[in-house]
């Protein structure tokens, strides 16, 4: 196991910044247990993923306080919406006095990515599940972090234990998110402007690097396509540009890489 300590820890809280490549799951397949998988997930999630959630949700917490939304509501929004773009849309439109229906539509549009994410992810959790009803609960824990982190680790996690990995990883992310929301709300983020900017910037840079590490080849092509056409399409239409990016970029990647690669993953 590799232990990397950060040299420039951006916040005062000491986080175990440990990044373990998922391929280095200790032991052979026979020694991998539900417990060892959970522990691995906690380790994987306790580094950058937790730090990113902590800092980005700090931003949401601060915004919620400025908007005079109670801390309890802010926490419920973090756990219940569990998607930062939608949370930000909710608070910003709330402050501007927008009507409830318009807010709900905007929040929904900002979080529409959860549909294709769930379709492409939940089947991986369904294997051997006696009550499919659990999927409706498990999907609530899904975020870019737990989605990308799980997809990264799943090739080395036995199929029957993938739910254990996902719940442990996503649960840790949720705790970091709730902690961040609280810290931001209580005004813990009294940092120099440049540091605050850097912490906000941490979010997209982290996701860019994590996604770039996907071993899934059609996914890599889709990432490139989406990154190239995303900003222009968003500029043309902020509401639908993102969904269009997904459909157009994804279809391009699907056609370019050929359907022969279907099912080659995980």
């Amino acid at each position: 196991m590799r232990l990397i300590m950060s040299t420039g820890q951006p916040i005062g809280i000491r986080f175990p910044l440990i990044v373990v490549p998922p391929a280095k799951l200790n032991g052979t397949a026979s020694t991998i247990t539900a417990r060892s998988v959970r522990r691995q997930a906690w380790r994987d999630a306790s580094g950058l993923p937790s730090l990113v959630l902590l800092t980005s949700m700090t931003g949401f917490g601060a915004l919620a306080r400025d908007s005079e939304l109670g801390l309890g509501w802010a926490w419920l929004a973090t756990a219940g919406i569990w998607g930062l773009p939608g949370q930000l849309a909710m608070v910003e439109l709330y402050v501007s006095g927008t009507g409830l229906a318009a807010i709900a539509v905007a929040v929904g549009l900002a979080n529409a990515r959860f549909l294709p994410m769930a379709v492409s992810f939940m089947p991986l959790l369904a294997t051997g599940l006696r009550r499919p009803l659990w999927l409706w609960l498990l999907v609530q824990l899904m975020s870019i972090n737990s989605w990308a982190g799980s997809l990264r680790a799943f090739p080395t996690v036995p199929i029957a234990l993938r739910r254990n990995y996902y719940v442990a990883f996503a649960g840790q992310c949720l705790l970091a998110g709730l902690l961040g929301t609280g810290l931001g709300y209580m005004g813990a983020a009294a940092l120099p402007d440049s540091v605050t900017l850097g912490l906000i910037f941490l979010n997209p840079v982290f996701f860019a690097i994590i996604l770039a590490g996907t071993p899934h080849r059609p996914g890599q092509v889709a990432l490139l396509a989406g990154a190239l056409i995303g900003p222009p399409l968003f500029w043309v239409n902020p509401d639908w540009g993102l969904l269009l990016t997904g459909v157009v970029g994804g279809t391009m990647a699907f056609l370019l890489t050929g359907s022969s690669s279907a099912g080659s993953r995980a």
């Binding site: 773009p85 990515r113 294709p116 994410m117 379709v119 492409s120 992810f121 089947p123 991986l124 870019i144 989605w147 990308a148 979010n203 997209p204 840079v205 996701f207 860019a208 996604l211 996907t214 899934h216 059609p218 996914g219 890599q220 092509v221 889709a222 990432l223 490139l224 396509a225 989406g226 990154a227 190239l228 056409i229 995303g230 900003p231 399409l233 968003f234 540009g241 993102l242 969904l243 990016t245 997904g246 459909v247 157009v248 970029g249 994804g250 279809t251 391009m252 990647a253 699907f254 890489t257 359907s259 690669s261 279907a262 099912g263 993953r265």
Partner: peptide, 25 residues
């Protein structure tokens, strides 16, 4: 999960996330 529709939706997810992140930057 082994089918073409699943493969396509996975591509859509990746493209959508890449677009979102590129936009944030």
């Amino acid at each position: 999960p082994q089918g073409r529709l699943f493969a396509w939706v996975t591509c859509v997810s990746y493209a959508l996330l890449a677009g979102l992140i590129a936009r944030m930057i």
